[in-house]
Every structure is written in C-alpha cells, then in structure tokens.
Design a protein around this nucleic acid. Structure first.
Lengths: 208, 208
DNA sequence: AGATACAAACCAATCGGTCGGTTTTTGCAA
DNA sequence: TTGCAAAAACCGACCGATTGGTTTGTATCT
C-alpha cells in the first residue's frame, strides 16, 4: 500500500526549504534586534530564537551582516509597500488630516518595527557595509512616503510653504516623538501633540 | 642641593591624579562612543585612546557601564547647564526666533555630542541599569530646555496653542532632523526647513 | 607605614565564523 | 518506474580573536 507520508515525511522542495529557513532567520533577527538591540543581537541569540543550527545559517548567509541586512531590507520594503498603497479614500470623514497623521504614526512609528528601525538606522552610521546595503532601501522608503503624501495632500490657497517641505517637517516631528517614546516609554500627551500638529498643519494643507 | 623637580617629577596630589584620570577616561569614552557607536566602543578601544592601563581603569571604575554612565552624565549635565544659561539678550535683532532655533540646533543637535547622545539614548532602551542611571539626567535636561524656552518665548495674542506644546513639537522636529543627518550625513536643505519652521512658529509665538 | 594610583599578565566567557560529516532532495540514466 | 550519484540542506563540534573583568605586584603620595 503506497500510503501518503504518515507523519515525519513532509517532503518539502528545496526552494520551499530555502525560503522558509531564510524567512525564519530573518524573523528571529528582527525579534532579537527589537528585544536586545543591535548591540545585544548576537548570532547565538538569533539562532537560538529561530531554532536553527549554525551550519544551516552559514549555508544560507555569508556573514552576520548579510543576515541582518536581509532582515532589515525585508522590513523596510514592506513599509515602503504600505506607504505606496496609502489611499485617502480609506480615511473617515471629519478631521481627515488628523486621521491621516494618526494612521502614519501607528503604521510606521509604533510597534516592534519602530525599535528595529532605530537600531538599524543608527547602526548604519558606524558600519559602512551595512549602510551601503541599506541606504537605497531607506531612500526608497523616504521617496515612497513623499510620493504618497504629495498624492494625498493639497496646498490650501494662500499657503506660504510647499507641500513637500511641510511633509518633511511632519516626518521629522513624528520621528523625534517616536525616539522619545523609545527611550522613555509611551506617553499619552504625545497623542494630544499630534492632534495639535494636525490642527496647525490644517492651516496650510488639506486632504484631497 | 634640594632643587626643584627637574623633569619627570610633577608631584601631583592624589585628588589631582584622580580627577585627571577620570576625566581622561570619560573623554576617551565619549570619543569612542561617537566614532564607533555603543556597539563598537569596547573597553580596549577606550583604554587605548586614553592611554590608560586596564588596572588603572579598574581602580577608578567598577565596570564598563560605570564608566560609560559617568561619561554620559557629564555630557548631559554640561548640556543642561548650557540650556539653563540661555539668554535671549544674546540673540541678534531681526528674526530672533530663527536665530534662537538655529542656536538650539547648533548647540544640541550638531557636532560629535549629537552622535553620542543618540547612541546612549538608544542603548538605554535595552540596558535597564544604564537607563536607571541616566533617566534622571535626561529628565533634567528636558526640563531645563523647557524652562529656558518658557522663559524666552511669549505667546502671541490669539494663538491657539500653549508655548510648552509648541516647544515640544519643535524639539521633536529638531531631533528627527538630527537623526536623519546622523544616518545620511548633513543635508543643506534642512537649514531651509528650520527657517521655514521658524516662520510658521512665528505665527504663534515671539521671542521676548 | 599605610593608603592610593597605576601597570601588565592573566582569566573565563562569548563573539563571528569554519569544517568535516550526515540527511534530504533532485536530475538523469537504465 | 527504479537506481544512483551529484547537489543542496543541515548539523554541531571546533577555531582564533576579542570581550569585560580579576589578580598580583610596583610606584607614588600622605
């Protein structure tokens, strides 16, 4: 009787294996990066989380940096995707500008991704090789945010500033706020500050 | 003939020795942190820069964290001092708000201190002991900036926001801008953005 | 004399990375 | 379809280098 594999015989294809292994390692890397920081995310720690042997890792990656870079690239590319697919129609009526700001905040500057983002960005400063690999992806993300913002926002008549500039200021502001929360923990007053910023911003632009 | 010490006999007092040694180590620590990041600032690297033996270090500090914390504390306290002594009279006439913003930028978010500040702040996230030691000093710095700002800025009639909130938004903005430059290098366009922000801010507050 | 400041050899633990060997999948020839 | 060798996936022991930290001994100051 040629039965189907009973239990321990998944018979996965090599490509399937490869993809799953790399994904598992990348996920564990992000987890370790977020939990222990770039400084504490040792290879042993990552491999332990992923339940992957050293040999397997070596088979798929040429160095630790190679793994970290891939994980960061994947995360950034996903964020870029999200930014590009931002559609104003999804926003509720009423104060749409505030809603947009809030959406941007929760999407990009909250949750475990935020910690990883800061860790990796800062690590790029002192690691030329990592910077070389991630710079284009970072740039792509920034460009996507700018593109989405320019598509969604419209300058009010009489405004004295360009949409792109106001957008950059907004991103800087959110980023500084996020860094604050990374260091000191979440702070409820920041939500009020975002609302305030939306109100100020509303003097110059509107969601269209 | 009891001559004065000819050359290799400085005869420094113990307190003098102690202070100089600790200062030298702290300076080397900041240098290493700025150049190599928290991740790369090893004890060997620091001691090498300072030209200090391992034994001497151990005599003055109980651990690496002890040294790093002291160095960061000193730097933050100095910044706090600077913030507290901020006097609007020093500002030139003309666009005083823009001048104030620019002064804040160059004082706190430019130069080697900035890098160290980010490295240490981020390290605090994943190192509870470091965070415990530096949290009060960080808080003191923030409070000093707020106090100085509140003393220098005056709300214009009809403004809809509190000075403190606008101040916090400004700090967040500068911080996000600084983080950008940390990762991607200095960018001339940011100066124009600061000028723009000063103009927008001028709608609500004035330097008094 | 006694304490403090400093130096250098030394230590276990951990780091990223390598290496020989085993298991699983695959492509091709019989 | 089956047999089988090459290729790819995977494992864990092992490696030299480096980490933060200790220890033992000497010089300098009080």
């Amino acid at each position: 009787m040629s039965v189907a594999p009973t239990s321990a015989k998944p018979r996965r294809s090599q490509e399937e294996r490869r993809r799953e292994m790399r994904a598992r390692l990348a996920a564990a890397t992000l987890e370790s990066l977020g939990e222990s920081g770039y400084h504490g995310a040792s290879l042993s720690d990552i491999l332990g989380r992923a339940g992957v042997s050293r040999g397997a890792w070596a088979h798929h990656f040429s160095s630790k940096l190679d793994l970290v870079a891939l994980a960061a690239e994947e995360m950034l590319r996903e964020s870029t995707e999200v930014a590009l697919n931002l559609v104003p129609a999804d926003l509720p009526d009423g104060d749409r500008l505030a809603a947009l700001l809030e959406a941007t905040w929760t999407r990009f500057y909250q949750g475990p991704r935020r910690e990883v983002l800061f860790e990796v960005a800062l690590a790029c400063r002192t690691d030329a090789e990592l910077r070389a690999r991630l710079a284009p992806v970072f740039a792509g993300f920034i460009a996507a945010v700018g593109q989405a913002g320019g598509r969604v926002l419209r300058l009010k008549p009489g405004a004295v500033a360009a949409v792109a500039d106001l957008l950059t200021l907004t991103i800087y502001m959110l980023r500084g706020m996020a860094l604050q929360e990374v260091t000191t923990g979440p702070d409820g007053r920041n939500a009020a500050l975002r609302a305030l910023w939306a109100r100020l911003l509303g003097e110059w632009v509107e969601v269209g």
